[in-house]
Simulated assay, not measured.
Amino acid sequence: SCVCVSPDVKPQQDFFPLTVEYREKSSSAGRIPGNFFRREGRPSEREILVSRLTDRPIRPLFPKEFLNEVQVFSTVFSADNENNPDVMSINGASAALHISKVPFHGPIGAVRVGLFDGEFVVNPSMPDMARSQLDLVIAGTRNAILMVEGQADEVSEETMVKALEFGHEYIKQICDTIEELRRRVGVEKMAYSPREVLPDVEGHVANLTADRLTEIMSIAEKHPREALLAAQTAIAASELNQIGHIDLHANE
Rank of each mutant, 00 (worst) to 15 (best):
S28Y: 05
V87S: 03
N143L: 11
D80A: 00
R23N: 05
V111A: 02
T214F: 13
G167L: 02
F116Y: 08
V122Y: 00
D8M: 12
L208N: 11
V3L: 10
L229V: 02
S27G: 09
G30A: 06
Y192L: 03
K101L: 13
F16N: 05
L164P: 06
F66I: 11
G30Y: 06
L208K: 04
Y22E: 01
L61V: 08
L136C: 04
F120M: 02
R225V: 12
M88C: 02
I58E: 13
R184E: 13
T54R: 06
V70C: 08
D8P: 00
H98Y: 15
P85I: 00
T141S: 14
T233F: 13
G186H: 11
S193Q: 09
L97C: 05
F36H: 11
T54P: 04
I171S: 01
S218M: 13
Q242V: 10
P57H: 04
F16W: 05
A96E: 06
N143M: 05
E82K: 10
C2E: 13
S26K: 05
S78R: 14
P194N: 12
C4L: 07
D86S: 01
A234Y: 07
V50T: 05
R23K: 13
P194E: 12
V201K: 07
G41E: 04
E40N: 09
N123T: 02
F37P: 00
G41T: 04
R23G: 08
E21H: 11
V187A: 08
A227W: 03
L53A: 01
A220C: 05
P60N: 10
S74N: 15
P33W: 03
S51Q: 13
E82S: 12
G167P: 03
M126W: 06
L146D: 02
A206K: 14
I99M: 09
L67H: 06
V5S: 14
H223A: 14
E149Q: 05
A234I: 08
P124G: 03
V155N: 01
E239V: 13
Q133L: 09
I32Q: 11
Y170K: 05
R59A: 01
L213G: 01
E157F: 15
F116W: 05
E21W: 10
A206W: 07
I174V: 13
G203F: 09
V102M: 03
L53M: 04
V113A: 00
V5R: 10
R112N: 00
E202Q: 15
R195W: 06
A163N: 08
I171G: 01
N91G: 03
L240M: 07
H245C: 15
L49G: 02
L61T: 09
F15K: 06
C175Q: 05
M160S: 13
T19M: 15
R183L: 14
K25D: 08
V5W: 05
E202L: 15
I32T: 15
Q133Y: 03
M129K: 08
S44D: 01
D135R: 01
A206R: 14
E65P: 07
I108W: 04
T54Y: 08
E45N: 12
Y170V: 04
G109D: 03
F166D: 07
T214M: 15
L181V: 13
G41D: 12
I174Y: 12
E179M: 14
R31F: 06
D55K: 14
F116S: 05
S193W: 07
A234S: 12
